[in-house]
């Protein structure tokens, strides 16, 4: 798959297969096209070359087998928490009543029971991201896409939400592609980490994470965790240098 515009390729030669039931993190330097990759997978953008297959079938724009958790919560301010969670189901043709029945369990799962009737403006940033997550999970997608969903949260809350994602994932085992630029976030969550190069983003390396599940916060202190962290830091540092170099080149042109 390749994606380019105005002589500037964002992504090149991304050839990768996500195994069903796996949690995959994609990391790469900023501007390497991580978010673009996710937009293509979500059907929000067409690749200029190549294709995306889901279960062997080409992914359609209107394909309802994928759901996305956005970086900004992107909640509908005129809908309650419950109706925000049912939104995807309603788009996919469920009646409001059926959708609400299905949504109930997921609101529970993300820890928002009691807030069904609240409006987004009444929620904290972390809670808004929980709604964002529930809204995607509730459609039971074959592929769950997450675009740096905790990038706007403060570090403590982010760690907490990562543990929440881990807890929820243990229950749903949804095939997930999670984009991040944080190495520790990727290690904590992933079965497999795809490291992208600087722009145009290519796959630099695929790193398996064999830490036992379910993972608790303490796992961050394990030597295996640190070993992975060091290895990934080195890979990322290379690409970071390249990004800086590219930027200075572009300025001089």
């Amino acid at each position: 798959m390749r994606l380019s515009g105005e002589n500037l390729s964002a992504l090149e030669d991304i050839n990768y297969k996500v195994d069903s039931g796996k949690f995959v993190c994609v990391i790469g330097p900023s501007g390497c096209g991580k978010s673009t990759l996710l937009k293509v997978l979500a059907g929000l953008q067409n690749p200029s070359a190549g294709r995306v297959l889901l279960d062997g079938e080409p992914l359609q724009k209107s394909d309802r087998n994928k759901a996305m958790v956005f970086q900004s919560a992107s909640l509908l301010p005129w809908r309650t928490v419950l109706r925000n969670v049912t939104y995807g189901l309603e788009i996919q043709g469920f009646s409001v009543r059926d959708a609400e029945k299905i949504a109930d369990g997921f609101i529970d799962l993300v820890g928002l029971s009691g807030f069904e009737k609240s409006y987004p403006r009444e929620l904290s940033g972390g809670m808004q991201q929980r709604v964002n997550l529930a809204r995607a999970l509730v459609t039971n997608p074959k592929l769950l896409l997450m675009d740096e969903p905790f990038a706007n949260l403060d570090p403590q809350l982010r760690n907490f939400m990562q543990a929440e994602v881990e807890r929820i994932w243990e229950q749903t085992r949804q095939t997930t592609l999670f984009i991040t630029h944080l190495i520790d976030e990727a290690i904590f969550l992933a079965d497999e980490i795809v490291v992208l190069t600087a722009r145009p983003g290519r796959i630099k390396k695929i790193v398996a994470v064999d830490l036992p599940r379910p993972r608790k916060v303490e796992i961050r202190k394990a030597p295996e965790f640190h070993a992975l962290q060091d290895m990934l830091s080195e890979l990322m540092d290379d690409e970071f240098q390249k990004t800086i170099y590219q930027q200075s080149q572009r300025k001089n042109q």
């Binding site: 979500a42 059907g43 209107s62 309802r64 996305m68 005129w78 896409l145």
Partner: peptide
Amino acid sequence: NSLLELARSFGANDLQLFTTIAIPSTV
């Protein structure tokens, strides 16, 4: 734009975009 992307990510068609996003956001 983020709300339009949200609707599209669920596979919303134009009519759904219009009724669920465009109309309420113009109120």
